[in-house]
């Protein structure tokens, strides 16, 4: 087990270094003089020279990367070009918002998808299975920015049940915050909900065909016990793996959802910084998100190795 943990840790560090390199290189993809592109045509020669120096563009690329990377290791991701503050403090203000909404969305999708997947598999071919399968397929196909707009139209504009947009911290005003969070959380949950339901259904279908399930049934166990104690335990493993991947979709979703509902989180910061070409922020966001995703996968992999010795020894 120790060897397995060590191997996975080293792997994660290598991946992180590569991510940092990818994040860093985006600035250098910009066609032409990056400083000029960032500041626009009206900038004076002096401003351009200053920015070039600030970003280190006057140095060879590997020197720039080395400097950026060693600073990043010390928790210094540079200064934002537009916010005129350190990247870390800009991100620190917005990260909790995205984590809060993302966690709620993930919880919501787990709570609904696993029972839905089980019901769908156990009652295969019944009307409930058809409804769940169709809903999951729609969930995979619906553009979530459009779902958000539909929600705003019906629940805010027509029925007046929910506020149109905005974000309030649950610590400031819990009731308002919850009302504002309902639609964004549902929109964020749609993709994880659909993928997890489909995965639960298909791995459950796979498992209930196995011999040990027939054995359990022939022992005279109640169907409920067979499903929850015998089948689910094995069927859930691929679902847990998939759970680790959901962080990617939640962050992707937050880019769209925060834009529609005007929520000051990482997603919105990302979009505005990309279009403003505020690259220190963009690089910082990518790095922070990647660390979160790598950590999530690491935790899933380690727990997986703990549960299933075959993976450990591979």
């Amino acid at each position: 087990m120790a060897g397995f943990v060590a191997r996975r840790l080293v792997q994660s560090v290598i991946v992180l270094i590569m991510v940092s390199f990818i994040a860093f290189s985006f600035l250098h993809l910009l066609p032409g003089d990056a400083a000029l592109v960032i500041l626009g045509g009206e900038a004076t020669q002096e401003e351009i020279l200053n920015l070039r120096q600030e970003l280190g563009l006057d140095q060879p690329m590997w020197v720039q990367y080395g400097r950026w990377f060693t600073n990043a290791l010390q928790g210094n991701l540079g200064r934002s070009i537009f916010h005129r503050e350190s990247v870390i403090s800009v991100i620190a203000k917005r990260l909790p918002v995205t984590i809060y909404l993302g966690t709620l969305a993930l919880l919501l999708s787990i709570l609904i998808s696993i029972p839905a997947g089980i019901i769908s598999a156990v009652r295969r071919g019944h009307i409930s299975d058809s409804i769940i399968t169709v809903a999951a397929n729609l969930g995979m196909a619906i553009p979530i920015f459009w779902l958000g707009i539909l929600g705003i139209y019906f629940f805010s504009l027509k029925l007046g049940w929910l506020p149109v947009m905005g974000y309030t911290s649950p610590l400031d005003n819990f009731w308002l915050s919850t009302k504002q969070a309902i639609m964004p959380v549902i929109c964020l949950a749609v993709i994880p909900l659909a993928t997890l339901t489909r995965q639960t259904r298909s791995s459950m279908l796979e498992v209930i065909r196995q011999d040990y399930i027939r054995t359990a049934r022939s022992k005279g166990l109640k169907e409920k016990t067979v499903i929850t104690r015998h089948a689910l335990k094995n069927a859930i493993i691929p679902v847990v793996t998939l759970l680790g991947l959901q962080a990617r979709y939640l962050v992707g979703g937050s880019i769209l959802v925060e834009q529609i509902f005007n929520i000051p989180g990482m997603g919105r910061l990302m979009v505005s910084s990309v279009f403003d070409k505020d690259f220190p922020i963009v690089q910082g966001c990518i790095l922070v998100v990647a660390i979160a995703i790598i950590l999530a996968n690491l935790v899933i992999d380690l727990s997986y190795g703990y549960l299933d010795p075959r993976i450990r020894d591979d």
Partner: peptide, 21 residues
């Protein structure tokens, strides 16, 4: 490992940044 690194960046985020860059 390079592919793993790409997988650690959400696809929509990657496409957005790349598209603008």
């Amino acid at each position: 490992r390079f592919i793993d690194a790409m997988m650690a960046i959400p696809p929509l985020m990657l496409a957005l940044v790349l598209g603008v860059s």
